[in-house]
């Protein structure tokens, strides 16, 4: 991937200087080797820490929503004429712009409240995949050059090909270049290979119902209900999640396995027409629950049934918010 850091910093500085944005959400180098982490830049000096590379994992749209909501809440007690508008700049790859489109379609904020700094993306490194290929040896240092990760681990030096540790959602990404943007940095990235995006799902569907249930229970048993998946998801922005409602209480807060199943089942189902396959929930899960198997299924159904891909264009409204009289109803029970 071409190094666009210099250009990104230049643009960020200019935008801040011209007061086109109040804050820019981007990525910076993490404190652990070979990581990048979200950061907020509101002064020119800070802009020098911005980076964008294959280690940037999190979908930043989540923070856009958070910042705008917090700002709006803080303005509630201010007289209408004194209210200030805050414009959030965001470094956005393809999936981030899809999430932003979902927010805009769901009227979470106006298009003028967000300034999209588009960046091309060739996929990111899946930390869990990487750890696996290093046999869980701790990473001490490393570099990425020419599609190769040269890594110093506690168990010696290793070289891993980027294509071997790329996140599975990136491999089949259809939208690795921003769909909407106010400014583009770098030249568009080559297309990924989405042809077989549902091959795993198709295989899983062929399994017997008992096998499918066994897999679901096995995966959900790993869950410790830390809520990281929900918190990292840009589409999960309900002010009060159903998990936290107490009157009535929908889901028990304990470790009961059916409660976890119901929680995950409903959170996943809530993603119908809203999951952009950014992989954030999967990357943040401390226990490595296979959520993608289910999220991709939801995506597949949306394409099959409604011909819709979440956030793929501003015009294509979320599939569950509309209907067609021609919708298939082969699932209807007729005695």
């Amino acid at each position: 991937m071409e190094n666009i850091d210099t250009k990104l910093r230049e643009v960020a500085k200019r935008l801040l200087l011209e007061k086109k944005v109040d804050v820019i959400i981007g990525y910076e180098k993490g404190t652990l080797p070979m990581t990048a982490t979200p950061c907020f830049v509101s002064t020119e000096a800070e802009a020098d820490k911005l980076v964008f590379n294959d280690l940037c994992t999190q979908n930043l749209a989540k923070f856009v929503h958070d910042l705008i909501t917090n700002h709006k809440n803080s303005q509630k007690r201010v007289k209408p004429e004194d209210r200030k508008k805050k414009i959030i700049g965001v470094v956005a790859r393809g999936c981030t712009t899809r999430s932003l489109i979902i927010h805009l379609q769901e009227r979470q904020y106006g298009r003028d409240e967000v300034y999209i700094i588009g960046v091309p993306c060739e996929g990111y490194v899946d930390r869990k995949n990487l750890a696996k290929s290093l046999q869980q040896a701790e990473i001490l240092d490393g570099t990425i050059e020419g599609g190769q990760l040269k890594i110093k681990t506690a168990a010696g030096d290793k070289t891993v090909a980027f294509k071997d540790v790329i996140a599975p959602n990136c491999v089949v990404c259809r939208f690795n270049n921003p769909i909407i943007s106010d400014i583009m940095i770098g030249s568009p990235a080559p297309a990924m290979n989405p042809d077989n995006e549902y091959s795993k799902i198709n295989e899983f569907e062929k399994k017997s119902i008992e096998e499918r249930w066994a897999y679901f229970t096995k995966e959900m048993e790993k869950c410790i209900r830390c809520n990281a998946c929900r918190q990292a998801c840009p589409s999960c922005y309900c002010p009060t999640c159903f998990v936290e409602q107490s009157q009535p209480q929908w889901v028990g807060i304990g470790e009961d396995k059916t409660d976890t199943q119901v929680f995950q089942c409903m959170r996943l189902y809530h993603m119908v027409g809203r999951c952009v396959d950014c992989g954030s929930c999967i990357s943040v899960c401390p226990m490595g629950v296979d959520l993608r198997n289910y999220l991709k299924k939801i995506d597949k159904d949306c394409v099959e049934l409604f011909g819709s891909r979440a956030g793929s264009s501003m015009e294509d409204m979320p599939p569950l918010g509309k209907y067609s009289e021609q919708d298939k109803e082969d699932f209807i029970f007729n005695p």
């Binding site: 982490t37 979200p38 950061c39 907020f40 989540k62 923070f63 410790i224 830390c226 809520n227 990281a228 929900r230 918190q231 990292a232 943040v284 401390p286």
Partner: peptide, 11 residues
């Protein structure tokens, strides 16, 4: 700022 308010650290 970037804290997701998940409970991973505490769990």
């Amino acid at each position: 700022g970037k804290c997701l308010a998940c409970g991973t650290c505490t769990y």
